[in-house]
């Protein structure tokens, strides 16, 4: 096999994970904002706005998980045990939330309980994902081909801070999504929440950006050594511009721009993360090439992936297109 498939799989996997963060991010965010909504009718509208697409969004989580297992098995075997509890809580949260979602829409009585389950599941799943991200950046203790740390290594300030940051971040995605999909009082409410979340997100971005270089000397060197400093300077600059665009578009009462800007902020954070850990798939210890499956395994799966993923993407796009526009009470699910 003459072609190195590692870059191909890096792009596919990076894409799948980012798709997941963006797509499930805003519907988890809607769940996080759920208990603060003005009333029950508004809550129903909020649910309806993500009802057609939320489970398609979670597709990307499985594609990301299995993709990591298949394309970079060593990373899978190290990262999963290290994150035993966060992964467990994330999965349970997602299950709970998914079922609550469906049953709340069908329930005549006991709605309150499903509301709580929907909020609780969304919050736990998001916080756990943030911990996963934070612990990932912080790095894992590795011995040979296995994780060698403790199952509670994630209980450190940095992962917990990132967990809280992601809750606010998904809240921002959810609020800007609602701004785009709703109107009237609910829209005004979403705008206020989006502004509040944006302030929180900027605080967390500032904190995490200042904190990350101190986690590992390699990260500081990556960003602050010459000439990297020059090449990478656009990253914080563009992030700042997007933040300003988001703030400005909220102030002007725009409907679509804030959602695009919020996604842009996530993209910049994702890029920043990639720059910090490149070229490792287990930060600071195992590179993409060391963790990669043999070319024979990678090639075998690539054939099906290149055929099926574009179809899944087309379908995803189509279902968003079908349910474009505002959600209204009379068109709600019954």
């Amino acid at each position: 096999m003459a072609i190195d498939l590692v870059p191909v799989w890096t792009v596919i996997l990076g894409f799948a994970v980012f798709m997941y963060v963006l797509l499930d991010g805003f519907d988890l965010g809607v769940g996080i904002l759920f208990p603060f909504a003005p009333g029950d009718a508004e809550r129903t509208l909020m649910m309806n706005s993500v009802a057609p697409i939320w489970d398609g969004n979670e597709t990307w989580l499985i594609l990301g998980g299995i993709g990591l297992f298949a394309a970079f098995p060593l990373a899978f075997a190290v990262i999963m045990p290290a994150l035993y509890y966060p992964i467990l809580f994330m999965l349970l949260g997602l299950i709970f939330r998914g079922i609550a979602f469906e049953f709340r829409l069908k329930a005549k009585s006991g709605r309150k309980w499903w509301d709580r389950a929907f909020f609780g599941g969304s919050l736990v799943a998001t916080f756990s994902q943030g911990i996963v991200l934070g612990a990932f950046v912080q790095g894992f203790e590795v011995s040979g081909r296995q994780f060698a740390g403790s199952n509670l290594d994630w209980m450190r300030p940095f992962p917990l801070a990132v967990g809280a940051g992601l809750v606010v971040g998904y809240g921002m995605l959810g609020a800007t999504w609602l701004l785009m999909k709703t109107e009237g009082d609910l829209q005004r409410w979403a705008g206020a929440k989006a502004r509040a979340c944006l302030i929180g997100v900027l605080a967390f971005i500032g904190m995490v950006s200042a904190w990350t270089p101190f986690l590992q000397p390699g990260i500081a060197e990556r960003w602050f050594s010459w000439p990297n400093l020059l090449f990478l300077a656009p990253v914080p600059v563009v992030t700042g511009l997007i933040a300003w665009w988001l703030w400005d578009s909220l102030a002007r009462g725009r409907e679509v721009a804030p959602f695009l800007a919020a996604m842009g902020l996530f993209l910049m954070c994702y890029l920043g993360l990639g720059i910090s850990v490149w070229p490792n798939v287990v930060p600071h210890t195992i590179s993409l090439w060391d963790a990669a499956a043999s070319p024979k395994s990678q090639a075998f799966l690539l054939v099906g992936t290149l055929f099926l993923v574009p179809i899944i993407l087309m379908y995803t796009g189509w279902s968003y297109w079908v349910f474009r526009g505002k959600v209204r009470a009379e068109a709600g699910y019954h």
């Binding site: 297992f69 994150l83 992964i87 395994s297 799966l301």
Partner: peptide, 19 residues
């Protein structure tokens, strides 16, 4: 489950079972 509870099995057999 394969990763969290059976990481050594995952490391040993992933090249075959994961795809």
């Amino acid at each position: 489950q394969f990763g969290t509870n059976w990481s050594r099995f995952s490391d040993a057999a992933a090249e075959i079972i994961a795809p």
